[in-house]
Each structure stands twice: as structure tokens, then as C-alpha cells.
């Protein structure tokens, strides 16, 4: 697959060679990169084959140059993000990066399932962030070449040769708990004060407290795909916020508590030789202590994963099939 973690100097060389790149790394490094054919997002949590890294010295650089026959770069805000799927090439890949907590991300997260042409081409990407202890204080950034944005999504549209088809797959370590009741919500979005269980309304924060819910992840079944919603408990305001939106059409259950044996689980379910690009959730980095685990892959740990829509606590990867 080739090395993907690079120093700033190595990355500058790739940019100056005219390579078409997607770059993740600290804002300190990204802000010094030259103009070129690249998009990037601030994120200091990277993955090397030997383990996870919190680094200000390296960048995760994916080079798509040898794969594509054409490409174009776009910037979107909350008013035109819906065009991301119709701007795609006929047989292509859409790669995007969006800043955490931005209006464009929220618009995307709620409406992307219904974007025109959604699912025709793989729509991959991730949410840019900051050092975890600075989250909420420092603005995450995205870059289209060396132009910086804190409130826009950046995208690289790639056209593939006719004999190559790209697809996205996910790996979710979590499954629904058998003891969880079925939870529904009355509105789509990142926040619902109340939930419904068996037709009865409960205050969601109080429900979680009363049930002693430990694993703050909701799980929904999407025709066999297990989709997570990470929950953030605010003990001051006694509210629950969602790291991805819930939708009123779906039934959710709380996730089963997970042991920390992520490496065995990963190795059983993933064929590394197939993976062309991948990213995982920062929650996985912390909970499964992935700084200590050699998963044999380069990548990054993000504040949200994009695989057609916004996902949480998920490993996403791109596969290419020859037809």
C-alpha cells in the first residue's frame, strides 16, 4: 500500500510533485503546507501500523494520483452541501472533510440520506477536530489547498477508470444489548429531551440515569448494518446530546458493553490487503486504548466518520474492485 504517515517536508514534496492528496494532521502542520492539489483537515490523532499516535510531527497523507483519471475540488457551506452528491463524476469517489460543530456538518448529517444521487458513488470522509482537551475552545479547520476554512466542507471528487468500482464498508465493534428496550424519538436531530419506550414518553437523561446505562451508544439496524449514535451526557444541564443525529423513523437500542479486545475483533473481520483508505473514531482510540495496539494499518481517528452519512464509533474503509 505504501507509507502514508509523512513529515511536513515529505508532504511538501508530494504536493510540489502535483499529487492529488487527502491530508490529516495537526493545524500547526497543515497551516504551513503549500498550495497544491489537496484537501486537508485538522486532526492530531493518527494511526500507524504499530499503533495510534497523538502527533504534531506527522501527517496522514493519502495519494489518489495513480487511481484517478480526473478530479476536481469543491468547497461547500450549509446552503449548497446537498450538491456534493450531484457534483460527483459518473463513476467516482467523493471525499470530504467537515469541521466538527459546524453548521455545514449539521446540515449534512440531518439531510444527507435524502441527497439526490446519494449512494451512486462512495461518499467518504471524516470530521476534523482538535486536541481532545482543547475541543470546544479551538476551532477545527479544513483546507482546500492552502485556503483555510472553519465553517465549510471541502471535497475532492475523483473520477475512476471504467474498469474500477469503489465501495465503502464499515466495521462496528458494537451491537445492540439484548436487555435494552427499544427507544424512539419524535424528531430528527442532534438533541431530543424526551424519548419514547413502548409508546410512553420519558425524559431521556433521566431514563439513562434510572436504568444505569453505562455504554452511552445507541445502535440502529439499517438492513443489517449496525449504525451507532454516540451520546454525550451533560451533568450540569442534565441533557443528552447526540454526536450524530437520530431519526424519528428508526428504532434504537443501547449498545452492549464491550470488552477491550479490539485487536482480535479487528483482525477477524478485516482483510488489510483490500483497504485503500480508512479512518476510525476517536472514541475507539481512547476506549480500546489503540495507542498500544498494532492493527497493521495507517489511518486517522476522527470526530465523526462519513460513509454516505455521519457515523459514530465506526471504522470505515474504501475498497476497489476491478470489473
Amino acid at each position: 500500500m505504501g507509507k502514508k504517515l509523512h513529515t511536513k517536508k515529505e508532504t511538501e514534496k508530494l504536493i510540489k510533485e502535483g499529487k492529488t492528496l487527502i491530508i490529516a494532521g495537526s493545524e500547526k502542520l497543515l497551516s504551513k503546507l503549500p498550495e497544491g492539489n489537496w484537501i486537508g483537515g485538522s486532526n492530531p490523532y493518527l494511526q500507524s501500523p504499530c499503533g495510534g499516535l497523538h502527533t504534531e510531527e506527522l501527517l496522514y497523507v493519502k495519494d489518489f494520483s495513480d487511481l484517478l483519471i480526473d478530479s476536481k475540488f469543491k468547497v461547500y457551506d450549509k446552503n449548497n452541501i446537498h450538491q456534493i452528491t450531484t457534483d460527483a463524476f459518473e463513476n467516482g469517489i467523493i471525499a470530504t472533510i467537515m469541521p466538527a460543530n459546524s453548521e455545514v456538518l449539521k446540515e449534512f448529517a440531518i439531510n444527507s440520506p435524502e441527497f439526490e444521487n446519494q449512494f451512486l458513488n462512495p461518499l467518504l470522509g471524516w470530521v476534523s477536530g482538535t486536541d481532545f482537551d482543547k475541543f470546544g475552545q479551538v476551532a477545527p479547520t479544513c483546507y482546500k489547498s492552502n485556503e483555510k476554512f472553519i465553517d465549510k466542507a471541502v471535497a475532492l471528487h475523483i473520477q475512476l477508470p471504467k474498469n474500477i468500482v469503489a465501495r465503502l464498508e464499515i466495521l462496528n465493534a458494537y451491537e445492540a444489548s439484548n436487555s435494552s428496550e427499544v427507544i424512539t424519538f419524535e424528531k430528527d436531530g442532534f438533541h431530543n429531551t424526551d424519548c419514547f419506550v413502548g409508546g410512553k414518553k420519558y425524559n431521556f437523561y433521566k431514563y439513562i440515569e434510572d436504568k444505569n446505562i453505562e455504554t452511552l451508544i445507541l445502535v440502529a439496524n439499517y438492513s443489517g448494518a449496525t449504525i451507532n449514535i454516540g451520546l454525550i451526557k451533560n451533568e450540569v444541564s442534565k441533557n443528552i446530546f447526540f454526536a450524530a443525529p437520530v431519526f424519528k423513523d428508526f428504532e434504537y437500542k443501547f449498545a452492549k458493553k464491550r470488552t477491550k479486545d479490539y485487536k482480535d475483533f479487528f483482525n477477524k473481520n478485516i482483510d488489510l490487503s483490500n483497504i485503500r483508505y480508512s479512518y476510525s473514531c476517536l472514541y475507539n482510540f481512547f476506549y480500546f486504548e489503540l495507542e498500544k495496539e498494532a492493527l497493521g494499518i495507517d489511518g486517522l481517528f476522527s470526530y465523526g466518520e462519513i460513509a454516505y452519512q455521519l457515523l459514530n464509533v465506526t471504522f470505515v474503509y474504501l475498497v476497489l474492485d476491478e470489473i
Partner: peptide, 9 residues
């Protein structure tokens, strides 16, 4: 995955 998501949608 894409067909899981599309069938659902």
C-alpha cells in the same frame, strides 16, 4: 454496506 444503507433509505 451501500446496499444496506440504500435498502433502508
Amino acid at each position: 454496506y451501500v446496499l444496506q444503507m440504500q435498502t433502508t433509505q
